[in-house]
């Protein structure tokens, strides 16, 4: 049970971006150690207007514009986290985190371990991610598997405004570095968001549509595409169970395994490149688990094409799973045709 169900009396509609902003405002208000850092997050309000007017409310010392220095900026956030601040560092696009891999992967993720537990790095990296905006190859990638491969990091992918707020507050409460992948196409999506402080637990997936014919595990925008497909399949009498993964690392084994034991069919849907992606890991964990003996069809994956994200809108759509793709494969699975 997560908090948003309990507080439904106070639900209001906020956009995904507004929900994230609200989480940051709550954090800034309640903890003087919290600082926001990033490029153009101050007066400009962030590349996607997520920080918005926070600079007016909290001032430039708490909402700090950094120079265009991803490596250095991320490193400053790591050093600040190591010594007592709780920075939320925004990358303008998750793609730019490639410039800062050193600090995220070699430093933030490993410092606690390298120092034998004598230090901690409570930093949050926010990463606008995903395709669909026509921004092509260097502004559209989905890197969750990259970071999910690194012990020491936690990686979350909210799919709704309520989750975006709850997971960000959970990330802030976590004593270890957390990478939050925010899907750019979801920023304007509206949804009910509880007021006040609550946490959506890291490491916990959610069954967002129950069913018994096939399990679809999806994250971020793919959750919505999977739900759309599931609604169409329901009209044909096929009840797909849709799991919103929410956290890429650590994976919620229990929820996934329980679902596959029920349905016997698994379809993993993710936007990152199919090969060696998040779905590969989910497939493997199911194949290695007790759910194996319940499988009634080969596990299927729908992931991003083995290509950079293209510019042409038709090509761009074709490069990542869409609702009809999910519908088709889920149907074949449910009917025993795979």
């Amino acid at each position: 049970m997560n908090a948003q169900v309990q507080i439904d009396a106070q639900l209001r509609e906020l956009s995904y971006a507004e929900a994230i902003r609200e989480a940051m405002a709550i954090a800034l208000e309640s903890d003087p150690a919290v600082v926001l850092m990033g490029e153009d997050i101050g007066t400009y309000g962030g590349a996607f207007q997520v920080t918005g007017d926070l600079i007016d409310r909290f001032g430039p010392e708490r909402v700090m514009d950094t120079p265009i220095s991803e490596l250095g900026g991320a490193g400053v956030a790591v050093g600040a986290a190591l010594t007592g601040l709780k920075p939320i560092f925004e990358f303008q696009f998750s793609d730019f985190a490639a410039l800062a891999m050193e600090q995220i992967v070699n430093q933030a993720a490993k410092l606690r371990y390298m120092l034998g537990g004598e230090a901690e790095v409570p930093v949050v990296f926010r990463m606008p991610s995903g395709s669909g905006t026509g921004a092509a190859a260097q502004h559209s990638q989905s890197f969750e598997a990259w970071f999910g491969h690194v012990p020491g990091l936690k990686v979350v992918q909210p799919s709704t405004p309520a989750e975006a707020k709850g997971l960000l507050l959970a990330a802030l409460a976590d004593p270890d570095p957390v990478v939050v992948f925010e899907h750019k196409l979801l920023y304007k999506m509206k949804g009910p968001v509880p007021a006040g402080h609550y946490i959506t637990p890291i490491g916990k997936a959610a069954v967002v549509r129950p069913g018994n014919a096939v399990t679809i595990v999806a994250s971020a925008i793919m959750v919505h595409r999977a739900l759309e497909a599931a609604a169409k399949l329901a009209a044909e009498g096929i009840e797909a169970e849709v799991i919103d993964l929410r956290t890429v690392r650590p994976l919620d084994r229990e929820t996934i395994i329980a679902s596959v034991k029920k349905t016997g069919k698994l379809l993993c849907v993710y936007e990152g490149v199919r090969t060696l992606g998040v779905g590969a890991e989910i497939s493997a964990l199911v194949a290695e688990s007790e759910a194996f003996d319940y499988l009634d069809a080969p596990i299927q994956r729908l992931g991003g094409a083995e290509a950079p994200i293209p510019y042409n809108p038709d090509l761009e759509r074709a490069a990542v799973p869409q609702s009809p793709d999910i519908e088709r494969v889920a149907r074949q699975l449910a009917k025993g045709e795979v």
């Binding site: 016997g264 003996d293 009634d296």
Partner: peptide
Amino acid sequence: RATPVARR
């Protein structure tokens, strides 16, 4: 050829 659940 048999699926795992069929075998079980």
